[in-house]
Design a binder for these strands. Structure first.
Lengths: 196, 196
DNA sequence: GGAAAATAAGAACGGTCGTTCGAAAGTGCA
DNA sequence: TGCACTTTCGAACGACCGTTCTTATTTTCC
């Protein structure tokens, strides 16, 4: 790996954390450069525009989510066990103390949802992929007989994501100790009421 | 009402819309003044600081939510009918075409969750009130016999809010035509699986 | 080791940010 | 009408924004 690539990764790594706390807009090149002991222009030249920096952050965010939440779950047997692994992995992701700013997707969703441009498109793409991956996992749980044959995979994926989102709210803003427990209860109910 | 108060309301009214689209940070005094054909300093003098403007926006947001979602629901009989009215009112709130930027609370939650200062405190307070109001409504549905005696009111309020949050995601970012239908299905399941 | 290429720094740009201040204009009551 | 008070404006502030250049330094490879 060349020096330039290494620096670029170091930049994105830090930018990822800041964006989780302050959002993709609150992430500024000057502040980022100061934290990394780089010059503004030196940092800037790695991306060419702030938008490209934001895109790079979103890209690394989704690949990290995939590798830390989705991929490990594929080691579990398909169907419900795999869905449970995604659920627990997602909890770990959201409570990760190395991500003090919280889940970057929650930030980005709120920030980019009704905007346009590359960052929006990249986020939308990754969220669509996530929904599809979740839906497929649920669909497998149906064909495996863990869920009722007439269960609605997309609906279950939808409600699943709702649980993760409200968990984040209770964790971050309300600082509720029971945030995770309640998420587990909600998940259990989701599974049970769709059981075969 | 004095001239000053009238202007102040006009400012907050517009600020409310902008903050829903661009966030409380993206809401800038210069742009707001231009839109309202006021001078920056003239607008500024109504609040004394940007933070106070943000607080004013959050205040008006929660009072509007109360008056448009919660209060009308209290005309319905207590218990499940009232909860259903809240649910439908909340859907109207989130799909309101006069709020093109979407629900301001979703923006503010992501933006302020791990910050400090008055805006954070005001938001936290209003979200706590909301959770309490929801919980009480559910509790009444339990005592009225609409929900099982051993149902967990706080848990139901938690899951209820999760449905609203994911609905917002599907509406705003994913632009899914079925966003509202799926929310209704999720709500129906929430009610049924806690029925007496 | 030295040339070529990649990477970083420095200074400056036009803009916009929130904020301050003093003067101007408008308002409402005696 | 005159006067106190409220409301608005205009100009300016230092700070920071993203971005553009040119120059210096470092890395890479023959």
């Amino acid at each position: 790996m060349s020096k330039g690539e290494a620096t670029r990764e170091r930049i994105i790594d830090r930018a990822f954390l800041i964006a989780g706390r302050d959002g993709l807009e609150g992430l500024t090149i000057g502040a980022l450069a100061t934290e990394l002991k780089l010059s503004k222009s030196g940092l800037f030249s790695h991306f060419g525009s702030k938008e490209e920096l934001q895109v790079a952050v979103l890209d690394v965010a989704s690949s990290r989510f995939t590798e830390r939440v989705m991929l490990p779950a594929f080691k579990a047997p398909r169907g419900l066990p795999r869905l449970e692994r995604i659920f627990e992995g997602w909890i770990d992701w959201m409570t990760d103390s190395k991500m003090p700013g919280g889940c970057i997707f929650q930030q980005a969703n709120a920030e980019l949802d009704d905007r346009q441009g590359r960052p929006h498109d990249v986020l939308l793409e990754s969220q669509k992929n996530l929904v599809e991956a979740l839906t497929k996992t649920v669909q497998l749980a149906i064909t495996e007989g863990h869920f009722a044959k007439n269960a609605d995979a997309r609906q279950i994926a939808y409600e699943f994501e709702g649980i993760m989102m409200v968990m984040n709210l209770y964790l971050r803003l309300l600082k509720d100790r029971k945030a995770v427990d309640r998420a587990r209860m909600a998940f259990k109910r989701l599974v049970q009421s769709n059981a075969a």
